[in-house]
Design a binder for these strands. Structure first.
Lengths: 335, 335
DNA sequence: TTGTATGCGTTATCAA
DNA sequence: TTGATAACGCATACAA
C-alpha cells in the first residue's frame, strides 16, 4: 500500500499539483470552490504531505531534543513535563535522551543529533561534564546554527542561554528557617560537594549561618564521596547534642538520615530537624514528613522551552540570557 | 552562516558531488585515497548531510513516537526509560507525548503524528479511551503504514501488537501471599474499578480467594469513584476485626490507607496487612515499608520497543503478538 | 574508479 | 484563478 502523494490528489481532482499544494496550504490565490473540492478529495484519500519533502523545501524542522541525566529523577521528569507542554503548544516535538550520568553516552547522543534532526537542544549535563570533549561537541552545534539552552547542570564557560536554580538562596533560606525554629547547630550534608551546584548550596549555607551570627563549624560540614555511607558520620555528629538540625541536599541520603536518627532514638524535629531537597512526593509520605526545597522543575522546563523557541525563531545574535529560578521551601513536620 | 552542503564539499575537494556522496557513505566504488581526502574535508567543513534530503531520498525516518498518560507516574517513566534505551541502540529517536488522561489531547497528538514525523508509535491510552474517535484516528495509521504497539492501557478491539501486564496473577498471587502469612479476611480497594485493568485485578483477587477456599464477601470489595475518600470506608471496614488485610491497586490510595490505619491505632501488618501497586521507591521509605507489586515498567518499555522495531523493519503482515509480562511481589514489612 | 543525470515530494516563482 | 517549471540536497542508475 503506497502512500498517497500530491500527484495522486492532483489526478483525482483534475487540478495541477501546484494548485493542489496551494489549496491545501490555504493560499488565497485559490478559489473557495476549488479549495473545498481539493480538501475533500485529500481527506477521502487520507493524503498526508510528505514530511521530508516539505521540510526539505521549507528547510526548518519543528523538532527539539532534550538530554537529561535520568528520567526516573522526579525533578527531571517535571522538567520534561513542563518543556513538553510548552513545545507542544508551539508545534514542536520533543525528542528525549538520557545520559545516565555518563559523559561518553552524552557525547554519543550529541554526535547523533548533529544530523539535523532537531533545530534546538535543551540539555542538563552529566555529572563531571568538564571534559573538553563535550565542550567541543557542543560548539559544533553553533556552526550548525542549532541553538542550545542549558538548565540546572550547565557548563560555565560555554556561551548559551541558561536556566539555573537559585541554589545559593535555597540553603541560605533553609538556614534562616531552621534558625527561626530555634535551631543553631546546623549540619550540612552534601553528596555532590564536587559539583558547582553543590558548592553554591554550600555557600548559601555558610552565608546563611553568617547572617545569623552563627560561627561556621567545619566539623558540621559533611561532604560525601560516592559510595560513602553516612551512618558513622551521622552517629558521631548527632551524639552529645552536637547538632540540632541537618540540611541534606540529596533526596535518598535525606531519607537514610531520617531513618538513622529515628533508630538512634532521636525525636524529629524536636531533637534534630531535617531539611531535604526534592520536587517529588516522597518526603510527604514518610513519618515525620520532611520539609523540602522545591525546585520547580516544571517551571524550569517551561522557561527553558520558551527560551529555546525564541532562539530558534528569532535572532540568534542577541545576548545570551541567564535566568535564575527561585526555589521555595515546602514546610512539613521535620522542622 | 549557511549550512554547508554536499556541493560545498564537492567544490572544496574537486570531486563531483556523486563521488563525494559515495565516499561519505563508504561505498566500495570509491578508492581509499579519495575517501580519505573527502572525509577529511567534510570534517574540516563540519559537513552534516541534510536530514530531510537524505530521508526523502531513502523514504524512511528513524523516529518513533510514544504517548503515555503522565511522565510523573513512576511506572510510565520506567517504561520510557526502557524503551528509549532499546530504541537508541537501534538508532531510533524517541519523541515523547503525554495525554494527561485526556482523550481529546490524545487525539490532537495522534492527528499531529499523522504528518509522517514518526515511523512507528508506542501508546498507552488515556483512561476511558473507548471513544470511537480514537479508534478511527488510530486506524488511519494503518493506511499510513505506521505500525502501533499498545502497552498496558490497550484498546481491546483494535488489532495491533500489545504488551500487557499480568494483572490477573498480580492480585491472585497477592492473595496467596497474604494467606500464607495467615490472613484470610482480605479487602480489595480499587480506584480504577471501571477499567479493564481494574477488572482483571479484581478477577485475580476473586479467583485467588476461591483457590484458597475463602468465601468472597462483597462487602470487602471497595470500588472507589473519582473524588471518593476512603476514610469512612476503611474506618468501617477495619472495625470489629472484619478484615485482616487489604490489597489496594493504586499507589496514593495505598499510602492514605496505611496512614489511616496507623492513626486508628492498628498495627501493620499484625492487625492488618497491606499490599500495594507501584514500580517506584515510595513504598520503601514509609514506615512500615509496604509490600508491593512490581510491574517491571522498564522491561515493558524494552519489549514494546523491540516489537515496534520489528514491525517497522519487517513484514507488516505477520500476526499480531500479545505479550503478557508477569509482575512480581516485592516483599516488605507491611505483610 | 569517477562523473552525469534523474528523481524523491514539496513549495515558490513566474507565466498564462 | 490556475498551471508549468525550478529548486531544496541527496543518493543512485548508468555512462564513461
Amino acid at each position: 500500500m503506497k502512500k498517497v502523494n500530491i500527484i495522486d490528489v492532483s489526478k483525482a481532482t483534475g487540478f495541477s499539483k501546484s494548485t493542489v499544494s496551494k489549496a491545501l496550504n490555504n493560499s488565497k490565490e485559490i478559489s473557495k470552490k476549488t479549495k473545498k473540492k481539493i480538501n475533500s478529495f485529500a481527506k477521502k484519500l487520507n493524503y498526508q504531505p510528505n514530511f521530508f519533502a516539505r521540510n526539505l523545501r521549507k528547510n526548518n524542522i519543528k523538532n527539539v531534543g532534550i538530554i537529561i541525566p535520568d528520567i526516573l529523577n522526579y525533578y527531571f521528569a517535571k522538567v520534561i513535563k513542563g518543556a513538553q507542554k510548552e513545545f507542544f503548544k508551539s508545534g514542536y516535538d520533543l525528542v528525549c535522551f538520557f545520559n545516565e550520568e555518563s559523559t561518553s553516552k552524552e557525547k554519543k547522543i550529541l554526535e547523533k543529533l548533529k544530523n539535523g534532526s532537531v533545530s534546538g537542544l535543551l540539555i542538563s549535563l552529566a555529572r563531571n561534564p568538564y571534559s573538553e570533549n563535550i565542550k567541543k561537541t557542543l560548539k559544533d552545534f553553533k556552526s550548525l546554527n542549532t541553538p542550545i539552552v542549558m538548565f540546572d547542570r550547565v557548563l560555565d564557560d560555554f556561551k548559551c542561554d541558561k536556566v539555573l536554580m537559585d541554589d545559593f538562596n535555597s540553603t541560605f533560606d533553609s538556614v534562616k528557617h531552621l534558625v527561626s525554629a530555634g535551631k543553631r547547630k546546623i549540619a550540612f550534608v552534601s553528596p555532590i560537594h564536587d559539583t558547582i551546584i553543590g558548592r553554591k548550596r554550600y555557600d548559601g549555607y555558610v552565608d546563611g549561618l553568617k547572617s545569623e551570627n552563627i560561627k561556621f563549624d567545619k566539623d558540621l560540614y559533611i561532604p560525601l564521596t560516592k559510595g560513602d555511607t553516612i551512618e558513622s558520620e551521622i552517629t558521631k555528629l548527632s551524639s552529645n547534642g552536637r547538632i540540632d538540625a541537618i540540611i541534606c541536599i540529596e533526596q535518598h541520603t535525606t531519607i537514610s538520615i531520617l531513618s538513622l536518627l529515628l533508630n538512634l532514638g532521636y525525636k524529629v524535629p524536636k531533637d534534630i530537624a531535617i531539611i531535604g531537597f526534592t520536587d517529588g512526593p516522597i518526603f510527604k509520605y514518610v513519618k515525620p514528613s520532611i520539609t523540602s526545597v522545591d525546585q520547580h522543575g516544571e517551571y524550569v522546563g517551561k522557561l527553558s522551552a520558551k527560551l529555546l523557541i525564541k532562539r530558534i525563531e528569532n535572532d540568534q545574535n542577541e545576548d545570551f540570557v541567564h535566568e535564575i529560578v527561585p526555589t521555595s521551601l515546602i514546610k512539613r513536620n521535620s522542622t
